[in-house]
Simulated assay, not measured.
Amino acid sequence: MGTTVRRAVLLGGLLWMAGVAQATAPEKAPLPRQLQFDFKATVQADGSVMDVEPDAALPEPIRAMIRTRVATWRYTPLRWQGNAVPSPVLQQIKAETVSMPNGGVALRVIEVTGQTRTFRSADRPAGVPMPPPRFPPELMREGVNAVLVYSVLYDEAGKPQQVDLVYPAKSDRVTKRLDQAARDAMREWVAPQTFGGEAIVCRARVPITFTTTVDGRSLRVPPEVDASFGKYTDLCPAAKLETEVVGTFL
């Protein structure tokens, strides 16, 4: 019997997935089981965290663990033109199970990202504000996995006015094809940016990941790419996690 491999397009916190049948691969050594936990919280103007609310569907012991752990984290607060204000954050903790010497199991943090929403190809609604790129079928068949990072300048209506591919720096056949798919989607985007209830013109870092596997940990963006956004003075305000949590335990 065959298995199903997910083909996905990930843009920031938006994930589009479609199932494709594939012959069963030879068995390999089991990998640590990966889990995802969603939560929302409020980042105060001083960067502290309050009102942590894990996904209500999680077991209460896990919810209590997340509340206790996240309450110790610190964020760079939401800022615009020198002013900091409290802001809500929606985050997803990706963790893996680790067997302990005493026979127990611990949860080790792999990554903390924005929450992920899933759209199946057959259920994709018409007129969504940020339609995901269409994964080029020929590249899906080739098993392509790639991440592209853009600098996108939004106008007051939330329409992209300037789209620059920041990563990868070198373009090949695959990158050009994926870049075109991403730009075709972004032409339809409407993502108004606001601060204090007022519409603003600002620039956002937009990662888009095209992947044919569930485990995308190998698709890391080099740190210098994120650091390069520090040169912009018009970045859209966003609270950013400061606490180093990757590799720590919940």
Rank of each mutant, 00 (worst) to 15 (best):
V20R: 15
D184L: 05
M100E: 15
V174K: 15
F119M: 13
V112F: 05
L31Y: 04
A18Y: 12
R79M: 12
R220C: 01
L14H: 07
A45Q: 05
I110R: 12
M140L: 11
L10I: 14
V52T: 13
G103D: 07
D55H: 09
A239W: 01
M1Q: 10
L78C: 08
L14F: 09
T118K: 11
T213W: 01
W80V: 01
G12F: 03
M65E: 15
K40N: 11
G127Q: 13
M17P: 01
G127K: 15
A56L: 06
F249Q: 12
L148F: 07
D234Q: 05
Q115E: 08
L178W: 02
T248V: 06
L10P: 00
P237R: 08
G247N: 08
T97S: 12
E60I: 14
E96C: 07
V112W: 04
E242N: 09
M17I: 13
D123E: 14
P32R: 13
L219A: 08
Q115M: 08
W189I: 06
G216R: 07
A181L: 07
D172M: 11
W80D: 01
T113F: 02
K159Q: 15
L78V: 01
T24M: 11
T233H: 03
E53L: 13
R134S: 07
D155H: 04
V190Q: 15
V214E: 15
P136S: 09
V206R: 02
L90P: 00
G247V: 09
